[in-house]
Amino acid sequence: MIFFFKRAFQDIRTNKFLNTVTIITIFLSILIVSALVLFFLNTNDYMNSWKKGIRIIAYLKPDIVEANLVDIKNKIQGLYGVAEAEFISKEEAMKRLREQMKRQSSLLDGLKENPLPDAFEIRLAGRSSNIENIENMAVQLESLPEIDDVEYGRKWIGRFVKLFDLFRLTGYAMSGIFFMAAVFIVVNTIRLVIYSRREEIEIMRLVGATDRFIKAPFYIEGIIQGALGGIIGLAVLFAAFLYIATNVEYGLSSGLLHVRFFSLRLSGTIILCSMLVGWLGCFISLRQFLKE
């Protein structure tokens, strides 16, 4: 095993140029794919926190008596996807309105009677906050006899979520394409490496080397190249991330946009993936070569 590693390193040294090309190929692919993944990770975070903020307001009919409130609350909380329902009395609603209006709140003093209805403010459970669920919930709420009207940002939520889904789908597709392109390029550079060494391989076979013996250093090389390409790719991405993150957060200077890098585990997975790219590239080109 040590021997195979030694041979692999020796091979890398003697084939510097093609090995560098392979590493750069893997590095660029990993950089592009993980930049995409990072972008979607952060926008997804942002979307989720935004979705969590989505509230559905269910206004109650004016003639509801207080004794029924617990009953209604239970009914609402029994619906699928509801995290919590909070009762907002019309007095509470008025208070909030006053706070929102601040100075102009004196305008409200003129009112003889509180015109606001009692309401329940409903928060959605994290997972269920896709647009279909929200619409479903609204329909179910409206069908309750005690509820007069339901309000949520129907149209623009729908549009926004759909746009984002489309966006994300494109991202997945692009990541997939880049992954395949990386494998394809690695297959071809390794094929060049093998081709430049076909004489050596042929001689090895003639003196009694098994295919396994011949292939092992190539696999080790491929995996090392994958690891190096992956590590460099992540490092460059991290540097770019730090640069952009400090500027963006400074520029917006609101806790609104909090960006993050990959977790250690995800970074590890990405490096494993890039090793897989190296391995797969070797596997495909070696299988073609040693078959004839």
């Binding site: 003697t14 004489e199 050596e200 090895m204 003196v207 009694g208 080397a209």
Partner: peptide
């Protein structure tokens, strides 16, 4: 078999020692 090829067939990128050792390594 031990084969002595008419055109030797030594591996040009390996040293004399490594060329000979290859048989035993394999």
């Amino acid at each position: 078999l031990g084969i002595i090829f008419q055109d030797y067939k030594l591996i040009p990128t390996k040293t004399v020692f490594d060329n000979v050792a290859l048989v035993l390594e394999a």
